[in-house]
Design a protein around this nucleic acid. Sequence first.
DNA 1: ATGAAAGCGCTAACAC
DNA 2: GTGTTAGCGCTTTCAT
Lengths: 345, 345
Amino acid sequence: MKITIKEVAKEAGVSIATVSRVLNRKDGIKPATRKKVEKAIDKYSFIPDQIARTMIMRETKTIGVLVPQLSNEYWATLAAVIEEELWKCGYTLLLSTSSTREDCFTKEMAAIESFMQKKVDGIIYSTSSGNHPNFQAYTEKMVNYPTPIVAYDHKIPGLSQVFGDHLQGAMDAVSHLITLGHQKNAYIGGPLVSPERELGFRNAHTVQGLPVDESLIMRGEPTFKFGYQSMTTLLYGNKSFTGVFCGNDLIALGAIQALERAGKRVPGDIAIVGYDDIHTARYVKPALTTVRQPLQEMGKAAVELLLHSIENNGQRLEPRNLVFPMQLIVRESCGTMVKPEISFS
Amino acid sequence: MKITIKEVAKEAGVSIATVSRVLNRKDGIKPATRKKVEKAIDKYSFIPDQIARTMIMRETKTIGVLVPQLSNEYWATLAAVIEEELWKCGYTLLLSTSSTREDCFTKEMAAIESFMQKKVDGIIYSTSSGNHPNFQAYTEKMVNYPTPIVAYDHKIPGLSQVFGDHLQGAMDAVSHLITLGHQKNAYIGGPLVSPERELGFRNAHTVQGLPVDESLIMRGEPTFKFGYQSMTTLLYGNKSFTGVFCGNDLIALGAIQALERAGKRVPGDIAIVGYDDIHTARYVKPALTTVRQPLQEMGKAAVELLLHSIENNGQRLEPRNLVFPMQLIVRESCGTMVKPEISFS
DNA sequence: ATGAAAGCGCTAACAC
DNA sequence: GTGTTAGCGCTTTCAT
């Protein structure tokens, strides 16, 4: 038989209102009554029904989190950070991913809708379909949603957002390449990946009075496969270049793999910089020089922003934007000799 | 103003029952009425309240998934597989992790309880506290839970479960080491990690009539750090060994890092085998010889088992156990020269 | 200090 | 075909 507060009430010889009161730690209850009720709860191993409670309280204590994919270390780590942070604050997360499937935009919309149906208290939204033709139109409506949303690492006017300063990150990375003497560099990445990274690549050249060879710009998906294929294309195209900036570490790993297969040495023949600083970046040989994103801080900030706006949802407060600085991590893939670091993680 | 089916009904000039019918694609409705209702739904951008619906239907279309940690590639990938599979079947996942914190057992219990309160339709449960003193007592009660649970890669009597044949996997790995001529081998891993892997390690030796040096067995956590530290201990303990079987790939990576720091060559001086075949295993140098778990299949199986028992929850069907075979992937870390594989993933 | 009763938004059984 | 109505399990006035 199904146990509800009714059964508990009967067992304890009180009304359901009283049971509800002890469940919610309200005071103004005779200790003796409370004892009786607690005993009944225990006897039946009664677990209160959140769903019924939600109907009245209008809160689910769950947050919808949308990330592009979990099989990518960067996003998985972000999800981990968010989960931990949310749990500390008494929230659980409803998780969806978007970019495993071709039509990620459709999946994203469906996931958000599912979050709304399930009445999550808030949403943390990172996207992989920022370049979809209908993206703008869709996200513009988000401002009017009853559910607070914070955008992670992409712009949605009117929403609170957390993002990384990728223009700076990319410039630092490419400047490093240039400083080491690399004048002809390729970019494998955006703007599908991230327009700012390509922009930073260009700026770094411009600042040094160096031209950018447009045929050395490869745009596509943020995957190992794309990195491998792009590098292969570059190699067989007989392009001349000595440095490569990759839109993320996975791309860099793929590029390195292609280089090795072609008998080129990294960094001897070609210098490579990645982006993200996923764990793997330190394990590989050569260890990857890359740009570290302060993932931990960014994830925490997203949670804070969200919970803050949940608490004050009455006032519909001004959206807040948080920008985080990136940090160049110099390892081996650009030829600067550094003592290999040991890291536990 | 809050939009409910009431408002939609009024707008369309019908009763709430009719609105409910079109929402649930019931037939027996005049096309004209359906049109009217659909227009009203559209006008208000009405999103039905799952919570209210759940109260009656007794299903949430959400599944609770508990994994040890998301920052570990193996578990993240499993979560990704499960999410994808579940989504296809119309389910969303409520995700929790256990082992980021010290007291993972407490967190696990709390997470499961939270799943129950939130009335998930089922739970996929993988654990990292199988060695906790109260674990057995706790899981024994799970059989009587009203919510179907499938155990992932650990035994809980009375539940359906999916697991890998780690005894076989470990034996294959260690036999490979022995076949290559390694007679004195270390094990860095369990039994906290997985008792079967240690057992397989022992069996492989026994079968070949080789003794196991107990001082070469290191037990601890499934982390990079533990691998690094254990190898360091082994090295400074002046032990003699030429092969190492690691409980998982992260441990193996840590061990290799320690070996390199100590000026040893892999596989020249020491041969290493890992376990899991995470993506990183191919990127590292030397590429890791390891045991591949059919993660994709195992994740899918867990989902299938769960959904099957959700559908037939009336009959309380017999628990089913699925065991998956492991596959040794020979790369470079044991000294067998193989052409490095290219893999897109 | 406790109980009775009114809903929260929806579905389903039963009318008509 | 469509409307009326009784709940689902809980919280919360309003009485007492």
